[in-house]
Design a protein around this nucleic acid. Structure first.
Lengths: 340, 340
DNA sequence: GCGCAAAAATGAAGCGCTTCAAATTTAACA
DNA sequence: TGTTAAATTTGAAGCGCTTCATTTTTGCGC
């Protein structure tokens, strides 16, 4: 009894003794067939080991029940949390998530989008606002909704779920200002085409300016978003003309690198230099010293984004901008400015 | 000039002045059409903003050029690395990766597999060997190849890419034995349906047994794979009848939790108790103390798995078992057994 | 039991592509 | 230039499903 070829819905229908149309209805809208029919179809499905063919379904119905999300990186834990939240929520609502990652390469993003579009995703999620205009044009002309996650600052007329990165910069700066710091430096991830970094820096700079503190460009140190980036950043910071007493890292992984390098260089945190960060990834609470950071609710962003994009797909009207709340977690890496 | 409806390949063909078949060939096997034809088609594609319909392609060709991977968790950095490596490699070879995550729930795995199968994946990747037999049966009857990642120990006749977890257990134990330790405890993640945990424990137990050291069940402490799990594990370990001087955590995240709790309880690592782990995730090198761990090459596993599954899909014969190499990274969390 | 509206089932059309046998064009060589 | 084989192109069939206009069955009130 060899299953030479995969059973089709027609085989199911035949075995169940119903028409193809009824078999289809039984699977797609069970409430529209008689219980007896449903039962017969379900049994035939089981007997045959029938598996629906999503490609045929998508082709015939012009629906794929899938959404796409493009991330800068899969391995950054903060995005992993968001991905997970999106997946769980989408799955609850009957949608499948397709993930693309550009590994912070701008060039490949358009290619990823096209690929997802070919795949028939009905809506898309992006991180941040800095993307090739062609991407948005493609989406719009294809009539596909999309949502920008994380950054509300420059969402323009797009849908967004996230927070204001400038405000994030402001909050973390005010914390350090409140501790009496006056000499600042910032370690950022790559800034090109990254609105989160750009706007956080702007928030920091503006907040400092209000106190009459200048943050010249050379005090904003740019490195890759890795532990090594953080280490290199601290080394650079220590070589600055005026050595900072407060160091803001724009992502926790940089802060962890700073921690590690500080230990090697025998720099005391927070005695000599305070570190404050933005993200709150899983590991920053157990870093030594534990990192003071602004929690950006990656989970909430993912969950809400999934809800909103699916609402848009289904013709509903979610709020255009959804703001999630930031929370300052004061831990051990920040302290009063040293008095010299 | 409204694009009322999405352009089809037929529209492209018409605009390019070639037949539907030629247009298809131009896109799928460019070398099989004349350069002039190719050029005309490409231009028409550009003019129309044509996007291929993967569903139609898949339906007509019975190929989806996609693979599926089922992970226990998206957020564990060790799996994130593997996912990333698979994606990069698959993409290079012209395949798309679909990721499913069961969040360590056995029940949902079969559902995930069915979903991926509906979606037309041509091959699948799993973590470990402990899966519902029904999953493998479904795959086999559907004639879909699959590969088991991470665990070679009990691959039976399946294809596998990974290492021997028993050997991993042995290696980490021998390191501690070499430091003179005699009192051991293990903190494991959930063991049910998790061959990695089970086999690592067996490796540890057997190695200890050879030295005449017994590892009774109550010295194997089971907690979720979280920082909190690690913390709770240390607390349990300290309450054991014979307090261990050597603690093996079966995943780095547990070791980080132990680190954190040890600090709070004023337990000195490695002076009073040595910690050795298995994984080497991104963050364990900067933990304080830095965690001695057995590096399991998550990237290699991902890359090789992608290569092998695609080889299988394309009818080639990759090696049935591919072993990746383990490396002991001795850092600060392990040291000589205290002499009392 | 009858008639009628509502519910359920039917079956054929068609979604947009690939494929392949057949037809046509090109290239090679005498 | 003529012939033939090789290289291209063509166009129709069909992948497995959903959909929807029709037909058939069911349920209800009298």
């Amino acid at each position: 009894m060899s299953k030479s070829t995969k059973p089709r819905l027609e085989d199911v229908a035949k075995l169940a003794g119903v028409s193809l149309g009824s078999a289809s209805n039984a699977l797609s809208s069970p409430q529209s067939v008689k219980p007896a029919t449903l039962r017969k179809v379900e049994e035939a499905v089981r007997k045959l080991g029938y598996v629906r063919n999503a490609a045929a379904r998508a082709l015939a119905s012009n629906r794929s029940y899938s959404i796409g999300a493009v991330f800068p990186s899969i391995t950054n834990p903060i995005f992993a949390d968001t991905m997970q939240a999106i997946q769980i929520e989408a799955s609850k609502l009957g949608y499948q998530l397709f993930i693309a990652s550009t590994e912070y390469s701008v060039a490949s993003e358009l290619a990823s989008v096209k690929n997802l579009l070919e795949r028939g995703v009905e809506g898309m999620l992006f991180v941040g606002t800095d993307h090739e205009p062609e991407i948005f044009e493609t989406l719009k002309s294809g009539n596909r909704p999309y949502i920008l996650m994380w950054s509300l600052d420059e969402c323009d007329t797009n849908y967004g779920v996230g927070f204001y990165n400038q405000q994030a910069g402001q909050m973390i700066t005010e914390h350090l200002l409140g501790l009496g710091h006056e000499k600042f430096a910032v370690i950022s991830g790559p800034i090109f085409k990254n609105d989160r970094m750009r706007l956080r820096i702007k928030g920091i700079r503006d907040t400092l300016a209000k106190q009459g503190i200048d943050l010249p460009d050379d005090q904003v140190i740019e490195h890759p978003l890795t532990l090594e980036g953080g280490r290199a950043g601290l080394i650079n910071a220590l070589e600055l003309k005026t050595r900072p007493t407060a160091l803001i890292t724009l992502s926790d992984i940089l802060a962890m690198g700073v921690n590690a390098e500080a230990k090697e260089q025998n720099v005391l945190i927070p005695k000599e230099i305070s570190i404050a960060s933005i993200d709150n990834n899983t590991y920053s609470s157990v870093a030594i010293p534990a990192i003071t950071t602004l929690e950006t609710p990656a989970n909430d962003i993912g969950r809400k984004s999934a809800q909103h994009i699916i609402a848009l797909i289904e013709g509903k009207k979610p709020p255009r901008l959804e703001e999630v709340s930031l929370q300052l977690l004061i831990r051990d890496s920040s302290g009063p400015a040293p008095k010299d």
